[in-house]
Amino acid sequence: MSLTLLNVIFAVVVAIAFAAANAAYLVWAERRGAARIQRRPGPNINGPFGLLQPPLDGIKLMAKQLIIPGGADKVLFIAAPVLAMYPAIMSFVTIPFSDTIVAHNINVGILMIFAFASTGSMSLIFAGWSSRNKYSMMSAVRAVSQSVAYEIPMLITTITVVMIAGSMDLMEIVHQQSRSILHWNIFPLLGKSHNLLMPASFLIFFICTLAETNRAPFDLGEAESELVAGFHTEYGSMGFGLFFMGEYANIVIGACMTTILFLGGWSCPFGLFPGVWWFLLKLYLLIATFIWIRWTFPRTTIYGLLNLSWKILIPLSLVNLLLTAGLIKVF
């Protein structure tokens, strides 16, 4: 695929549109889902099933004044919400939704996505630092330790998958899992590794995704009952809106990665009709699980979170990595 200027513009527009639409309607889905779990109807006034709620919320946010608190670092304060949104959009460029639907496939796609994902926590630090608010500051400090702690097991688990696939190309990883459900990386029976601990690996990756995207039960950065609203305490109007959208866009990225790395991407569980629909089905099931988890569990503590990472996730993922390496050698 040759990369022309038109291609780039098209890809970026589609990526932004996809990210924004997802972010907006995931808010709706989250609110409806949470409401169902709590036996309420949720937003149901604006439009059928409340479907007009997200655009109207967006209009409301955009119409509001962006207040920059006195003494805040203006440049960083404004840059932070943008930074929250852009890695998600950039990552969409390289994520393959099916054999044909991909903006630009590069053979180190995984690297690129992780590189962008790690800049995501920069936005929290910027926001926390520049707001000149103690709550925001504490939230930023938490966000740093959290992202440091969770990127390690996440990367180790990813390396396991990369070793199995022998490639960092997302397309290639999916292709290797494409035959049936038993070839998916989560079920190792017919795959390359035969590693029976891969479901644990999947779980580790999933937990790390939750933590990386600052979702409950790891939403320590936001922690509304402790730090008011954490890093975005001082943000109003679209600044807040961008943080909000960035959070959901990141969830989509996280779920995409989980789908690609472990659930066989767009391949069908039975090897029939592979296509983008399978990808989207898996993606939204994962996101539904995210929402379901958020509305079930209380928040962890900062040390509970670090303990979980350093005492459980990292050792387990390391064990898994060694085991996989050994098994690949054997078979």
Binding site: G33, A35, R36, I37, Q38, R39, R40, P41, N44, W292, I293, W295, T296, F297
Partner: peptide, 18 residues
Amino acid sequence: IGMEVTFKEFFKPTVTVQ
């Protein structure tokens, strides 16, 4: 177990009054 509880609640009718 916790997730099972919320899953069951998901399919129960709403109890609020509009």
